[in-house]
Design a protein around this nucleic acid. Structure first.
Lengths: 333, 333
DNA sequence: GAAGTATATTCCATATAATGGAACAGTTGG
DNA sequence: CCAACTGTTCCATTATATGGAATATACTTC
């Protein structure tokens, strides 16, 4: 074997439930070990944000760079073939236009033969679709699978009544989301009117550090887990109010922990404010949040403050429901 | 190698775009060949319906059964590791409750070691989530990927104005769907009110032969493709009006082809009627439909008849838009 | 319309990762 | 406490993925 860098080593995110079990020492796992998720020595997480970056092996590795052995050994035992396929799928899905083979070739630095075969497999499985012009885009099978994932989701089901009630009380759009790595994934919502697009945000993911839901969720994490996540956050600045450093985020989180709710002070999108509260099962394997969102011109910070009580009590109630539903007794649920 | 049957050979569906290219002889493909999709001799499709059946290899193959060589050779060159992983994912996703390792063991007849590793990989990738009680359910990553697949979907984007217009004209729920194998996948909708569940049907899939959208789509298929699909339909009876045979379906399709629109006469769900019209790009690589759906007590067959013109002209217009968008000139769209 | 360039596809010896049987460990229940 | 069941780990074998180069196919450009 040449000393070649594995192109997928640092791609892809990892997933909360998994981390938690690891962090709580519940599982020893050999199979899942490595793939760059947790560096064994310092316990840090590698690249859990999902916009995939595969460029690493694009260049043939200049002299002097050494592919350090430990990293290599750890990263080698990845999720294998599946991991590569998923990294590729993510790359196509997260692109903003259909990509052709050559485009992908440049972005992931894999040899043509391999890449082509992988794409063929993905297309045959319906995960990708190949357009008449030979470019690739995400396939319908994803929709179908996601529908099942969504319609059977415990959190969504349990949250619904609280969402409705919050919506009735506030008249604004109400969200529930789950933390997945360093991102928050929107699971369900009830909105004021047919605003812009019907369900534009369900399934959408956004960075945790700059959204109300995300910060609420982060505030509920045990210190070790939070540390792991922090170490792999990239603080991109979306607005003037976006947290741009670890310390400013930590300060905010501390405040959130004290009062039990979080604000999004136009940190992700200009003119959009929100108040959110953390939701978590006692087992700690699921962390998310509930939020009320509105446009700045209509919703003042005072208004959000006034709603904070309702939001956090709803979040607490939902947390209890969740803990019961996921509890050891209820196998099937 | 022992003469053991590969457990995955007959699992899983295949996907329309792919078939079309095959059927039109556009691609020679070696990589995608086989996996039981198209039997080389008679051109039939094997098991394109998606509710997965993996039980085949559960028994150790009784004496006398022979795993015929041709089939074996064809089926062997599958989508490989990815295919197995996806079949497993589908199995979990389509189940109606979280499954534990042993449950899966019974359903797919794979050795424990292999199954366990595959599940670990799926969990590590976020495609599955392992609950505290060690059972598996579909993971959040599916939602995230599907969101991208959905929000960038050409058909959805192009269909939206027509959906709105049809909804305004009829006041009932309007759907757009795409044919994917023998199933129709709901891509988008505009609904009358916040009926039962907000977007319950987006991403849902239903059999083509008993839905208005599905029949409309089938009617637009070239004979060869239709034949292929017919040969692997299983006519399950949902209501008294459900087509229960190939011939009755064909007869209906003929009528649909003549008049340009299809009815669902409470064939899938009791008390639900719909009128639909086919949508297809000239290239023939995308087939779907547009429909107006309503409850039987409110929407008479005469009413549907009256709407048929609007539906089919909208469908024609959308078809044109699609053909342009997918046309050879517009690379990026 | 021919030569040139960029792209997609196929081939095949080799390296790698999946396989599957069996042994081990942790839980439940009588 | 022992049986019966579950989930996990191990490791030699074998099937599968790999990747570089050769070939085919489209699009430009002159």
């Amino acid at each position: 074997m040449t000393g070649r860098v594995r192109w997928r080593d640092d791609a892809l995110g990892s997933w909360l439930g998994y981390w938690f079990d690891r962090l709580r020492g519940l599982r020893t796992d050999k199979h899942q070990a490595g793939f760059g998720t947790i560096r064994s020595e310092d316990g840090n997480l590698a690249h859990p944000d999902s916009p995939v970056r595969m460029e690493r092996a694009a260049r043939p590795m200049a002299a002097g760079e050494k592919d350090d052995a430990g990293q290599d050994a750890a990263a080698r035992s990845a999720t294998g073939t599946l991991g590569k396929a998923m990294a590729l799928l993510e790359l196509v899905a997260m692109a903003d236009r259909p990509l052709r083979l050559t485009d992908l070739l440049h972005r992931c630095g894999q040899p043509r033969g391999s890449l082509h075969r992988q794409l063929c497999h993905l297309v045959a499985e319906g995960l990708l679709r190949q357009r008449p012009d030979l470019s690739y885009e995400p396939g319908l099978r994803l929709l179908k699978l996601a529908h099942r994932a969504w319609s059977r989701n415990d959190v969504k089901t349990l949250a619904r009544p609280y969402l409705s009630r919050l919506h009735d009380a506030t008249g604004e759009t109400v969200h529930v989301g789950i933390l997945s790595g360093v991102e928050i994934v929107y699971i369900d919502k009830v909105e004021s009117r047919q605003t812009v697009r019907m369900d534009s945000r369900i399934g959408r993911s956004a960075p945790a550090y700059c959204t109300g839901l995300g910060k609420a969720a982060l505030s509920a994490l045990p210190p070790a887990a939070l540390d792991s996540l922090l170490s792999c956050m990239v603080f991109e600045r979306f607005t003037a109010n976006t947290h741009s450093s670890r310390s400013s985020l930590l300060c905010d989180l501390e405040a959130i922990r004290r009062c039990g709710y979080a604000f999004d002070r136009e940190e992700h999108e200009k003119e959009i404010r929100c108040v959110a509260a953390p939701v978590h099962s006692v087992q700690g394997n699921l962390v998310g949040g509930l939020s009320v969102t509105g446009p700045a011109y209509r919703v003042s910070m005072e208004q959000l403050e006034a709603w904070s009580g309702a939001v956090s009590s709803a979040a607490r109630a939902l947390s209890d429901d969740l803990s019961v539903a996921l509890g050891p007794d209820m196998r099937g649920f």
